[in-house]
């Protein structure tokens, strides 16, 4: 291909990637190292607010932002190095926990609590997604041709439903007076409050994620199954290979690149788990790294937001993703070169 043709095709995509991915990333990286602090002065202010039966006026010292001549708050922006990362990660608490072995203290820090949940969530859902995806794919592949269309459609439904909606529907089944809770209460004969148990909420969120993502794995594996070499399968049968042996030595090796692909996508997606926390109202029990970033970004009652810490936490999330997918990528790269 001529260089000119190559750039005509690739150029727009590179431009958009730089504009919408690289530049924002650089900006987030920059913001995780700088702190912009408003200049605050303490002044005596008289505030009059409604009272009963008549208005109440209070004069008190109040801290308020200093405004410049344009009526904008004056801010001092300074480079703070790793300070923001430190206030997210709290390395002091971490070292103390490592040296004393008291990890309960570590989980009192939001970041570590979120990391703990995020990692458990990611690595427990992964084998289920792969396993159930493969199981549905094999089932559909072996079912009568007439049934395949409807079965594929039904299996795909969970993947089509918007995550928040799907999550909320399952939440409603299990919350206080949900149908499933009522049924369980009927069976055991006393009140059950599923949402008061952290582990139960965690398990529900994982269940939901597997239910939601398994169809994606299924579609990929099903497509892969169409390309399995019939001759190899037949020779394996003639050699007396059992169904399981055929799966283990013919089908899985054939699907391996796809398994790596699904693993990669799933690791990246579930490390950014967020919708489940919203849908299951889980923030009192469990938070994820992505939730932590969101929480820093949300302005509080007086309009303050921690953009610096949000940037630091999102950079840490990105680093985390790279770390967990690195082994998978290396493996894929080795296979590719072979």
């Amino acid at each position: 291909m001529r260089r000119r043709t190559f750039w005509t095709f690739v150029g727009p995509s590179v431009f958009l990637m730089v504009l919408f991915i690289a530049l924002p990333l650089v900006s987030v990286l920059w913001q995780s190292f700088v702190l912009s602090i408003p200049v605050v002065e303490t002044v005596e202010v008289e505030t009059c607010t409604p009272g009963f039966p008549s208005q109440v006026c209070v004069t008190a010292n109040k801290s308020q932002a200093v405004l410049d001549e344009n009526g904008k708050p004056v801010r001092i922006t300074s480079f703070v190095g790793l300070d923001l990362y430190k206030s997210v990660v709290e390395p002091g608490v971490f070292w103390q926990a490592v040296t004393s072995g008291d990890f309960a203290a570590l989980l009192r820090v939001d970041f570590w609590r979120a990391l703990r949940f995020t990692l458990t969530f990611t690595f427990i859902t992964l084998p289920f997604v792969l396993g159930i995806g493969l199981l549905i794919a094999l089932t559909v592949n072996n079912s009568a041709a007439r049934l395949r269309g409807p079965v594929i459609f039904v299996s795909l439904l969970p993947y089509i439903i918007t995550p928040v909606i799907g999550g909320i529907s399952i939440y409603w089944l299990f919350v206080g007076d949900g149908i499933v809770t009522r049924m369980l209460e009927g069976l055991v004969g006393h009140d059950i409050s599923i949402m008061t148990h952290g582990w139960a909420v965690e398990a529900l969120m994982m269940f939901y994620r597997v239910w939601h993502v398994a169809p994606f794995a299924f579609v990929i594996f099903y497509a892969g199954l169409q390309g399995v070499n019939r001759d190899t399968l037949e020779s394996a049968m003639i050699d007396g290979a059992s169904r399981f042996e055929r799966l283990r030595y013919v089908i899985i090796p054939h699907l391996f690149p796809l398994i790596v692909f699904v693993t990669l996508i799933h690791l990246m997606d579930s490390y950014r788990v967020f919708e489940e926390i919203v849908a299951f109202n889980a923030q009192s029990q469990r938070i994820s790294l992505q939730w932590l970033t969101y929480d820093f970004l949300q302005p509080d009652d007086s309009g303050n937001r921690a953009i610096g810490r949000a940037s630091a936490s999102s950079m840490l999330t990105m680093i985390g993703i790279v770390v967990i997918i690195l082994p998978v990528l290396r493996r894929a790269w080795r296979d590719h070169r072979r």
Binding site: T47, S63, A65, D300, D301, S302, G303
Partner: peptide, 13 residues
């Protein structure tokens, strides 16, 4: 009355 101050949001958070 609920105070109208900057620290209120910070401490509530």
């Amino acid at each position: 009355p609920t105070p109208s101050t900057v620290w209120r949001g910070l401490i509530n958070d």
